[in-house]
Each structure stands twice: as structure tokens, then as C-alpha cells.
Design a binder for these strands. Structure first.
Lengths: 212, 212
DNA sequence: CAGGTACGAGACGTACCGTACCTTAATGGC
DNA sequence: GCCATTAAGGTACGGTACGTCTCGTACCTG
């Protein structure tokens, strides 16, 4: 038998002593996030994470039942959501800026991970919900904020302050990513969404109802 | 050494003679589709498909490089798209009927397969495009048709005949499936989409633009 | 009838899954 | 301070699937 030399490709963090509970949990999540950033969701395997965290699969399975759950947990822990809200002075500028940020997010490496997690958690509504919390583009709060400003400026009527209405633009953008697989959505699509759909929707709502 | 008895669970179609080219290709696609309907995309394995088709992995890999490509090819071959267009007499009825059909499709077994394929082809725009052709809800043709009827009835202005505008409703619906993982979207969501977003958008567009 | 080509068959090494089993260390109650 | 409890570590297992490779062989072509 040769030595136990294992010229492993994956980094193996030696266990300092014997970690327990929260300490070990954090080490696992950290290793999982590193795997995600380096090799993506495809590379997130229980065995690799265990090796990298300097532990074994047992410790992981005791905490998370599936790869998807582990991935979502790691993502939630380490990806901070940018909650800044643009304030350009007018609705179109704010909305466009929001879309551009979302576009950048989705096309970034982090966004790639998010997309993969979204696909991986496809049939687990609970996990999906956990992801949504950290996605924040679907979070209607930011959109409602810029709409509220627009209302106070008199750009649109207050009827527009409806969650489903507020997030229409970003939902359309996300659809481009999911159904078309864009690496990055061209800016013309963003302006198209704003000018052809979003603004007409906001301005048209409640302005009147043309007879019918 | 025990005998080579292999009480296999997966059906194994015996090869009649030695098929080649198109005949073999059809046999593989058929086996793939059967696997899809029985065990879903998760059960679509090169090995299982090969066994089922009475051939071997070689023949598959010569034709399709990945599982996703095989799945999409099989889906395209066997799932016929329902291209009927509702005609209820008014725009709201037509749109609602379109959404209800889409909802049924997405929540059916076939829809589950489609969703899985969509996730599986996540980072292959070419495959995604091939899927889109067969999806038809994204196909704006049907939506544009019902809109054209509404225009001729005077319900909405002709400015609404815009592909991105026309498909807004079904895109919002699809988003519910993908980000929320609904088994089936409740009807109230459909009416909400229609009444809060889609109709206001169509009626509001071009009615005017309130200064600014 | 010779030859190229594509298929059938199956083995191969790798990777990962999920589980099981035992050993060993940390922890908290007493 | 001691010991039972608990949670780690370590490791092996059977199983499945991947993707590749090597043959032998049937088919089609010229």
C-alpha cells in the first residue's frame, strides 16, 4: 500500500481541533460558498464540501438533506443583498437604473450561481422562498419605493402602488435570462421594457378607463 | 461468479435486426420520451435510454452530446403544441382563457418535463431557443391574434400590437411557476394578472401620455 | 466482392450519492 | 474533577451514472 498521499485538487482545510455546532456549521457553509464561487453549483458536491471544510459528509447530512438546501443556505449566508435604491429624480431614470442593476447582478458570477440555485430548487417551494428573500429584485419593496416617489412627484397616480404592478419590469427581465439564456441582456431590451411596457402601464393605470 | 442473470427493471426493447441512421435515431428519441413521461427528466439517463431503445450509449453520444440535448430533442419530437386560439368575444375572456390554458399546461406532467428541461438547458441558449419553438406560450403569435381581434372590436388601440406587450401576461404567469414553484397557480392570480396588469397596460398604452 | 462505416456489446476508471458503522473528542451534569 | 452523553471524525460500502474505449460484426456502397 502506498502512503496516503493524496495530491488533491480541492483544497483541504485541516481541522484545527474538533469543531462542533455553530463553528462547524459555519465552516461547512463557508466551504460550500467557496465551492459555489469556484466551480459553480455543478461543482457543489457533498464530498467536495466535506473535504474542503475538513470534515466528512456525515456532518453535512446531519444539517442539510440535499445539495440544493446546502447551496441555498450557503448563498443566503454569504450573499448580501444590495438594497440601495436609486434616486435619479424621475421615474424613468430610477426604473432604468433598477433594471440595470438587476441585469448586472443576474449576469455576474453571483447571478449565475443564483440562476443555478433557482433551477436546482425548482421543485421545492420552501427553498425557493428562502432564495427569494435574498434576491431582492423580486422584493417589491425597492420598486414600491421608487414608485412612491414618482407618485409624490405627480408622475403617476397612486393606483400604481401594487406589488404585482411594481415588479413587472424586473420580472420581464428575469424572463429574458431564464427563457433565452442571455449572458447579459442588452441595454436596448431594458429600455424597451421600460418604455413599451412599464411606463405605459404605470401611466395608463387609473388615468381613466376609456369607456368600454 | 454468479450467472449473468439481470432481472432488470427498465424495459428493454430487443433490437429487431440492426437499425441504422434515421430508424435508430427515432428509436432512441422514442425511448427518451418514454423515460421522460415515466420518470421525468431526472430519470432520463443515457444508460436507461440506451437499454430501453435496445441499443447502447455509443449510438446516443454520436448524436447528442448531453442529456439536455437529448431531452430537448425528444420533447420537440413528441410534444405537439396546442395552437388553438380562444375566441370568447371580448379581450378579457380571451386573455384569461389563454392564461388558464398556459396554467394547465405548465402544471401538467408535460409541463413538469418542460420546466425541468428549461432548468437543464439553463446555460445553453441554443437548446433554450429550440425549446421556445415548442412552447408557444412565449410565441407571441397567438397573443397578437387575440389582440388584433380586440383592436378590430375597438377595445384597445393598435399600439398594443407589440410582441413584448402582448406576452406580458404569460410571462408573469411563468414567473410564478419558476420563482415560486407553484404546483398550479390559483385562478385568482390569473385574474389579478389580467385585471391589474395586462388590461390596464393594453388600455392605457397610447390613450395618451399625461404630459411630462 | 471488397471496403468503409456505423452499430452492438460491454468493460473501464471516475465521481458522487446516501448510508452504515465504529471510534474519538468535546461538553455539561453531578 | 469524573463520567455519561452527544456530536464529531474516519472510513468503507453498494449503488448509479458518466463518458470513453475497444472490439467484433452487420450493413451499405461502389
Amino acid at each position: 500500500m502506498a502512503d496516503k498521499a493524496q495530491p488533491d485538487s480541492t483544497p483541504q482545510r485541516p481541522a484545527p481541533s474538533r469543531r462542533r455546532g455553530a463553528a462547524l456549521e459555519q465552516a461547512i457553509l463557508r466551504a460550500a460558498m467557496e465551492e459555489l464561487t469556484e466551480t459553480g453549483y455543478a461543482g457543489l458536491t457533498m464530498e467536495r464540501v466535506a473535504r474542503r471544510a475538513g470534515t466528512n459528509k456525515n456532518a453535512i447530512y446531519r444539517r442539510w438533506p440535499t445539495r440544493a438546501a446546502l447551496g441555498v443556505a450557503a448563498y443566503r449566508q454569504f450573499v448580501v443583498t444590495n438594497t440601495q435604491i436609486p434616486d435619479t429624480g424621475d421615474l424613468r431614470g430610477d426604473a432604468l437604473e433598477m433594471l440595470r442593476r438587476a441585469n448586472r447582478t443576474w449576469s455576474s458570477p453571483t447571478g449565475g450561481i443564483l440562476r443555478a440555485l433557482l433551477a436546482g430548487a425548482r421543485d421545492d417551494p420552501q427553498l425557493l422562498a428562502q432564495l427569494q428573500e435574498r434576491t431582492a429584485d423580486a422584493g417589491s419593496a425597492a420598486w414600491l419605493t421608487i414608485l412612491a416617489r414618482a407618485v409624490s412627484r405627480g408622475e403617476i397616480g397612486p393606483e400604481a402602488l401594487h406589488p404585482r404592478v411594481a415588479t413587472v419590469a424586473v420580472v420581464l427581465l428575469r424572463d429574458e435570462f431564464i427563457t433565452r439564456g442571455y449572458p447579459e441582456v442588452p441595454d436596448s431590451v431594458l429600455t424597451d421594457i421600460i418604455d413599451e411596457v412599464y411606463l405605459p402601464l404605470l401611466r395608463g393605470r387609473g388615468t381613466d378607463s376609456p369607456s368600454s
